[in-house]
Measured scan of single mutants.
Amino acid sequence: RQGFVPAAYVKKLDSGTGKELVLALYDYQEKSPREVTMKKGDILTLLNSTNKDWWKVEVN
């Protein structure tokens, strides 16, 4: 499932696989259909980080 999360809630990881991955630093509950819920410690695939406030991710 793809959607947006606050950029301040995730940290980029060095995956070494060519995929950009991020680590969820905090729990986040989606507040609109365009967002996704994540739990602290989740590893997500980063799809787009051009917006400084909201990053598009895919929940694996």
Rank of each mutant, 00 (worst) to 15 (best):
A7W: 02
V22Q: 01
K52N: 11
G41F: 05
Y28T: 00
R34H: 13
L21A: 06
L13E: 04
Y26Q: 13
Y9M: 11
A24D: 00
Q29K: 13
K12V: 10
K12F: 07
E35F: 07
G16T: 14
V10C: 14
I43V: 12
V57R: 00
S32H: 12
Q2F: 08
V22N: 01
T50K: 11
V36T: 06
R34F: 13
E58H: 05
D27C: 06
Y28Q: 01
T37D: 04
G18D: 12
S32K: 07
G3S: 02
M38D: 00
L25T: 05
Y28W: 09
K56L: 15
E20C: 15
T45L: 15
N51Y: 08
D42N: 06
D53A: 12
E30W: 06
Q29H: 13
P33W: 10
N60E: 11
K40G: 05
P33T: 09
E58S: 08
S32F: 06
Y28L: 01
K31D: 06
I43Y: 05
F4Y: 14
K40Y: 04
V36W: 06
Y26L: 10
N48F: 07
T50F: 09
S32T: 12
P33F: 09
E30N: 08
K40M: 08
N48R: 07
K12L: 12
D42K: 03
E35M: 05
L23E: 12
Y28S: 01
Q2N: 08
N48I: 07
L23V: 14
T45G: 08
G41R: 02
D27W: 04
L13R: 03
D53Y: 15
N51H: 12
N48E: 14
K19S: 10
K39N: 08
K52D: 10
V22A: 10
D14P: 15
V5Y: 00
D53P: 02
Y26D: 07
K19W: 09
I43L: 08
P33L: 09
G18K: 11
K19N: 11
W54D: 01
K11R: 14
L47H: 04
A7K: 07
A7Q: 05
S15A: 11
K19G: 09
K40L: 05
G41P: 00
L25F: 03
P6T: 02
G16C: 14
L44H: 03
Y9N: 04
M38G: 00
S49N: 09
T37A: 07
E30G: 14
S49C: 12
V57C: 02
L46V: 06
E20P: 15
V57Q: 00
Y9A: 10
G41D: 05
F4H: 05
D42Y: 05
V22W: 08
A8N: 13
V10L: 15
D14I: 12
T50M: 11
V57A: 01
G41H: 05
L25Y: 03
M38C: 05
L46E: 00
F4L: 09
V5Q: 01
K52C: 10
L44Q: 01
L25M: 09
K19V: 14
N51T: 06
F4N: 04
K11G: 06
A8V: 10
M38R: 00
Q2E: 08
L44M: 13
D42L: 04
N48V: 08
V10M: 06
Y9I: 06
A8G: 10
K12N: 05
V59G: 07
N60W: 14
W54N: 02
K12M: 10
E30D: 05
T50H: 10
L23K: 08
I43M: 06
F4R: 03
K56R: 11
V59Q: 14
L44E: 00
Y9C: 10
P6Q: 02
Q29A: 13
L13T: 05
N48G: 06
V22I: 07
V57P: 00
L47Q: 03
A7T: 06
D14S: 13
L13H: 05
R1C: 08
K39A: 08
K39L: 08
M38S: 00
L47I: 14
V10W: 02
Y28E: 00
A24R: 01
V5T: 01
Y9W: 07
D42A: 07
Q29C: 12
K56W: 15
V36P: 02
N48A: 09
L25A: 03
K40Q: 10
R1V: 08
S32Q: 08
K11F: 09
